[in-house]
Design a protein around this nucleic acid. Structure first.
Lengths: 106, 106
DNA sequence: TGTCTATTTGGTAAAATAGCCAAATGAATT
DNA sequence: AATTCATTTGGCTATTTTACCAAATAGACA
């Protein structure tokens, strides 16, 4: 694999990695419906606020979400709704997996 | 976030995690065109064969690829082509990111 | 200014991941 | 049976990730 090819896959892996955590998937899902501030997300998730803040910064660093400071709150929103196609893809993969497993059992 | 919700996102995260590595993305891409044995993949990737084998088992464990032993070789193939939609999604996300960044620069 | 409230940052410990080497396994061949 | 080739597994180390706590920062408001 040459450097250029590797760099291409690395760029994709960086985005995928940012999504590779249940809490972060939850955040993306919630934000796809409506923007939220850190404290709202923290309440929904039920983890330390600093933990949530770090998850948010991971998503922000790769450009999946963006922040908007208003007063002493910070609101997060999806930069692009197309991240949601992604969810559909995962869903269909999961679905195929289940089918595949059923066939193995039979 | 209740247990059921968490479990749902965890199942998705498991699949996404398996894809969250440049070498594994490369493997999925290559296998989408044609099945390959471990030594072929190893030659393309240029890492230790044991490393490649471990990447393959990560992909296999979540059901993205399946193996087929023939003689003393093991051929790997995608279990479902729908994993490729996934790539299209990532591509469009990357694309959006670039646009977003351009706008920030202006 | 001092004090809330909201958020981020730094530190730390535990767990997970990644890569290599060496050894083990397993099928094919001599 | 011994050897060879392809692959996997175990062991090890280095690195990364995760989560929490405590401390720092920043805005709003008394």
């Amino acid at each position: 694999m040459n450097q250029i090819t590797y760099a291409k896959f690395e760029a994709r892996a960086r985005i995928i990695k940012a999504l590779a955590h249940p809490t972060r998937l939850f955040i993306v899902d919630v934000l796809s419906r409506q923007e939220h501030c850190v404290c709202e997300l923290t309440a929904m998730i039920g983890a330390d606020m600093s933990t949530v803040s770090k998850h948010l910064s991971i998503l922000k660093n790769v450009g999946i979400i963006r922040d908007d400071k208003r007063g002493n709150q910070v609101f997060y929103q999806l930069t692009t709704p197309c991240i949601l196609n992604f969810f559909g893809c995962i869903e269909s993969v999961l679905c195929e997996m289940k089918k595949e497993q059923m066939e193995l059992v039979e």
